[in-house]
Every structure is written in C-alpha cells, then in structure tokens.
Write a protein that binds this DNA or RNA. Structure first.
Lengths: 121, 121
DNA sequence: GTATATGCAAACAATTTGCACGCCT
DNA sequence: AGGCGTGCAAATTGTTTGCATATAC
C-alpha cells in the first residue's frame, strides 16, 4: 500500500475522534485539509484501512460507521441521542464456549446493546 | 392494524423458515401465492410486522434480514457459507451488569458472532 | 516507467415514498 | 362511507465503480 496524503488524513481523522463517524462525516472533516478530495476516495480509503486492520468498521442499522479503536470492545447505542459509546465487558471466553458448544470457529464478535443512556428518563 | 391477505402471507412466509430471509426472498416466496404483489408492499409489511413485534429484524452487513423467531437469541454467521444460525447462550444477566456498570437501560441486544462453521477447514 | 491512487460522474443496491385506486370493517 | 392497504414507478440513500489523469517510488 503506497503512501497517499488522502489516506493519511482519512486515517488520522478517524483515529482522533470517538464519535464512530460515517463516511460522510469523515469526508466533511478531511475536506478541511484537502478541499477537493472526493467522496469516492474517502470510501476507498476507509475500505482499505479497515481491510488492513488499521481501523474498524461497525454496522449501525443500515449505515456503516468507522472506529479508530481497534482493541476488542463492544458498543452501547442510545436510541434517544443516538450516541454510541465503547464499553469493555469482562472478557467472557466466547471463543471456547462457541467452539465446544457449536463447533464453530469464531473470528469476530459484534455486540451492540441498544437502550437509553442516563441522560434520559 | 387492519387485516390484509398480503400481510398475512408475508408473516407466515417469514415464520415458516429459519433462513433469516431478506425482503427480496420473501417477495419471491409470497409471489407464489399472490403473483401481482409488489415489492413495496412486502417492505411495508415487514416494517409493520417488525415494529409490532411479530417478527424480528436483524442486520446482516448492509442488508436487513427478518426472523420469525422472536425469542431472545443470538446469531452465528459463517463467512464461508453465509448461513446464519440461531443460538441460545446461557443468559448472562446483561441487563443488570449494564445498568450497574454503565447506568444504561438496556432494551435490545444484538450479538452476531462471525466465523467458520464446521463444514469448512 | 509503471503501478497505484485520485477526482469525477455515472451506476448500483436496498429501501422508501407519492399517488390514484381498491378493499376491509 | 371512511380510511387503511395496495400496485406501480419514481425518488432517496449509502456505497461502489469505470475512466482518464496525477503521483509515489
């Protein structure tokens, strides 16, 4: 993967926020440094970066969001303010349970807990 | 919600398979009984049925799938054969943990475990 | 020099919606 | 009769892709 200014900035934008941005948000942000960057380029770079494991992709309903935090963690999604928060649960050894009980080789776990955060009643 | 033949059949199609169908698959299936049903109607009915809790909606990457099984359960998704299998894990009392640790009122949990089922090496 | 990356616009796929008409209740 | 449900097609939304040009190495 060859260096490009565009990819460099896409990556640093994703990695310097914890807002789990969409491609569109990243696009708007990168535009501040590279005004003539195109949305297609942002998508291409987000794909490459997540395929290579530099960032994570998470599915939020029908839209894809990106996450600079690549440590294993889960998400709380408040359906009032739509904020997504990272959480770390005590690591349950899912891998072993899933292997023994279902004979299934786990490679990825996506856990999203939806509900109401403490800002709402 | 008023009776309609279309909704009735959409519901029974979703509830009589465990293949976690997409809207398109349901459409093709319902067509066998109602040849001139439209895709829009299928979408509208899937939405109503899931909003009312008669069926579940699950997100599979960027496509939405539907599930006639409305009991609490999780999914194993094989990324070789793309099959989605229902599993029931020992109910960990997530609700309590999430409330105490994060002050967050859980209303829904979506857990998808991706990996390789025992048909592949 | 050559292959990869880019900008642009068109193509795509999944889903939603406006409208006139039809059918439950 | 009144209103919800339908078929149809067009519109939207999020994302991908083809192509000619630009850039890294």
């Amino acid at each position: 993967m060859r260096y490009s200014k565009q990819r460099d900035i896409v990556q640093s934008v994703v990695c310097s926020t914890d807002c789990h941005p969409t491609a569109d948000w990243v696009f708007a942000e990168v535009k501040k440094s590279i005004p003539n960057i195109s949305l297609g380029t942002v998508y291409r770079n987000l794909k490459q970066l997540s395929d290579s494991g530099f960032i994570n992709r998470i599915q939020d309903g029908s839209v894809t969001r990106y996450d600079g935090n690549i440590k294993s963690h889960y998400h709380l999604k408040c359906n009032k303010c739509n904020k997504i928060t990272d959480i770390i649960l005590q690591k349950i050894d899912l891998r072993k349970i899933i292997k023994t009980k279902f004979d299934f080789e786990l490679s990825d776990v996506e856990l999203t807990i939806t509900g109401k955060c403490n800002k709402h009643t």
